[in-house]
Amino acid sequence: MKEAAKRILMLLITMVIVSFLTFLAFDLISGDPATSLLGTEATPEKIAALREQLGLNRPLLVRYGSWIAGFFTGNLGTSYSYQLPVGQLIRGPLLITLCLSALSFVLITAVSIPVGVHTARRTGGALATVSVVVNQLLMAIPPFFTGVVLTWVFSILLKWFTHGRFPGFGEHPLASVGYLLYPAVSIALPRIAMTVRMLCSTIRGEMEKDYVRTAISRGNDRSGVLYRHVLKNSMVPVVTFLAQTMAEIVAGSIVVEQVFAVPGLGRLLLASIGNRDYPVVQAIVVILALWVVLAGTAADLINQRIDPRLRLGGAK
């Protein structure tokens, strides 16, 4: 339990650093939003009034404090370009991106774990070489290219879906999930290859350990040992890897949402970067970072449950 508490404390520290860096970066370099908001209508009096209204006159630490306080109470500030509360603006896209990420994650685990375990059992031979080459090839295909190819095949040639027309969760929840399947496949494909590769080398490494040899010498068959002992002991690095995968999925969805014109968080982020709408960018960046750090912490906590040694803060 002590280790878990320590891990959560580290999470908080990391989040404070991350949020402060984000805040500082946008604060220092974005220039004066009041001037850019007013544009050609800027007069010194108007700028001063708007700065007062936006609270830009307060010291940096005070503004950071109120921004963080707002973050926890759901008040993320007001978007410059949409004139809407950032929280309200983000909710819909966040749901879409969450759904897309969940879909990709399910695809990755559902495909790569059986395939990985299966390939790990076959060692050597021409098939092993083929699987390494296929793996490298799949890893080399960028998600946005897969997206373009899927669009070409399924939208233009087969007309299974209309590119660029996301149905929307409100009216057509099922059709929306169907539409998100294509971007999810694009994101999942290279990650599946990576996960299979990772699983394979972990299981093979574990299979060479003494306890496996002992178990087999006592008359257990290889697959029995694999399923009963080895898989459990291979879990720790796999869980860590899957947490990193969560981070990569989020990064991938920023790009792939653009390929399929999915109105998710990535699209909103890019639009906001284009509009210099910094409150929105700031909020999205911190939410995504929080997501990544949370995934890492969750993985550590799960690993402490799996492997009691980690609970004592021992072997890493």
């Binding site: 989020v250 990064a251 920023i254 982020l269 970067i273 970072a289 990544v292």
Partner: peptide
């Protein structure tokens, strides 16, 4: 903690 593309986006 930032996915690399996100950090690059912010810097850009």
């Amino acid at each position: 903690a930032f996915p690399s593309i996100l950090l690059a986006l912010v810097i850009i």
